[in-house]
Design a protein around this nucleic acid. Sequence first.
DNA 1: GGTGGTAACTTGCAGTTTGCAAGCGTGGTT
DNA 2: AACCACGCTTGCAAACTGCAAGTTACCACC
Lengths: 122, 122
Amino acid sequence: MAEDGKILPRSGCPIAATLELVGDRWSLVIVRDLLTGKRRFGEFLASPEGIPTNILAARLKRLEAAGLIEKRPYQSRPPRHDYVLTAEGEALLPVLQEMCRWANRHLPETWTPPDSFMRRKA
Amino acid sequence: MAEDGKILPRSGCPIAATLELVGDRWSLVIVRDLLTGKRRFGEFLASPEGIPTNILAARLKRLEAAGLIEKRPYQSRPPRHDYVLTAEGEALLPVLQEMCRWANRHLPETWTPPDSFMRRKA
DNA sequence: GGTGGTAACTTGCAGTTTGCAAGCGTGGTT
DNA sequence: AACCACGCTTGCAAACTGCAAGTTACCACC
């Protein structure tokens, strides 16, 4: 995956195309955090999975380039910004919910997400 | 990801755990092919995305180690085998369906999957 | 005004993974 | 024997990952 966020589709298959955007170990973890209210670089870093800072910065850049998230300044001195999901990014919720359902049924050690997350609608 | 298929969970989050198994560019493409009737090494290779042979072999090994697919001999002379989804692997169908719905709505160039795939139940 | 702290990154670098191409092993076919 | 098919394995350069350390921009205290 190129650093500049450009991705050339390998086929028109919707599954393959989706995977080219978010098919890696970290992107959907970031989307999960955004869906559960986290907004800032440091908050993503604090998640239990422990994403490295350079990977986080690269993924945020790519997700922004793909239009799934937006960077917004929330104060100017010192310059700080946070990230929010676009409508397109939020629409990934059902994918994550299905992953949770699958994992809870088939991977015994996984946590049950809060009801508010599982019932939530895009 | 270790070559031997062993994966140590980074957290109990069902999303992160799922991504550790199938969160890469190829695994779910293989599951897609299996769900649409493909069974053999050569058939996976022939998919339009063009997975390299060594990656395909590694992913099949990992999916088998994870219990998502099973290797079955279908003839003994010459020795040949194919792969089928286990119930656990088939249960990923809803995840793939949601990815298709998302992609069809948000990525303009993607194909619409056949109705039989989208309506299918696990 | 120097020291320290916070937030958001960037950089360096070794180790791992990817992807292309080529080769291998088993056995059928001619 | 020569050739082919299938299912891989191997070699290798390039790309990516993850850890640690450094950077930038400011604020706050002493």
